[in-house]
């Protein structure tokens, strides 16, 4: 079937199997930040934003995102011009092995989009679906809280 989606602001016209999962479609289209962890919606490594809501792309059928807008970690920033969150993850050592980062960043971005002044509890709540096997749970909370502060101050960053 034909799938029309916007990924990171760019229009795509993809030919996909009707029973394909979104995670596979995104990775095949080159968005390798989307990681496969548990493949059953438990770990959050595959999280992407679909029409503003972060979801596990491993349990989303590709057909469900017809005409939707998707944001992956690639859409946040790149090594030259990282998003404030990405830079903050690095600065706080919240990166660990890195596998959970793309999903965690998407969840964090979704939180800050809705709630620019999150409390620690808000951050924990928003990242509750992103498991980190390195158990780097504290530093990423610090990183998100710090990002929120930087955005609040209006310090020059990207986006």
């Amino acid at each position: 079937m034909k799938l029309n989606v916007k990924i990171n602001g760019k229009k795509f016209d993809l030919e996909v199997n009707p029973n394909a999962m979104l995670i596979d479609v995104l990775r095949d289209a080159g968005f390798k930040s989307v990681k496969s962890g548990c493949n059953e919606g438990s770990c959050g490594a595959c999280a992407v934003m679909i029409d503003g809501r972060p979801k596990n792309s491993c349990i989303v059928l590709a057909g469900q995102v017809q005409n939707s807008e998707i944001l992956t970690a690639e859409g946040l920033g790149n090594p030259e011009t990282p998003h404030i969150l990405q830079k903050s993850f690095v600065d706080h050592g919240a990166t660990q092995c890195g596998y959970c980062n793309p999903g965690s960043l998407i969840s964090a971005k979704a939180l800050l989009d809705r709630n620019p002044k999150p409390t620690e509890a808000d951050v924990k709540d928003a990242l509750d679906g992103n498991l980190c096997r390195c158990t780097g749970y504290v530093k990423r909370i610090e990183a998100v809280l710090d990002s929120a502060k930087i955005i609040q101050k209006g310090t020059k960053g990207n986006k």
Partner: peptide, 9 residues
């Protein structure tokens, strides 16, 4: 219910 990612779905 589950996590934020699941509750959104």
């Amino acid at each position: 219910i589950g996590s934020t990612l699941l509750r959104n779905a």
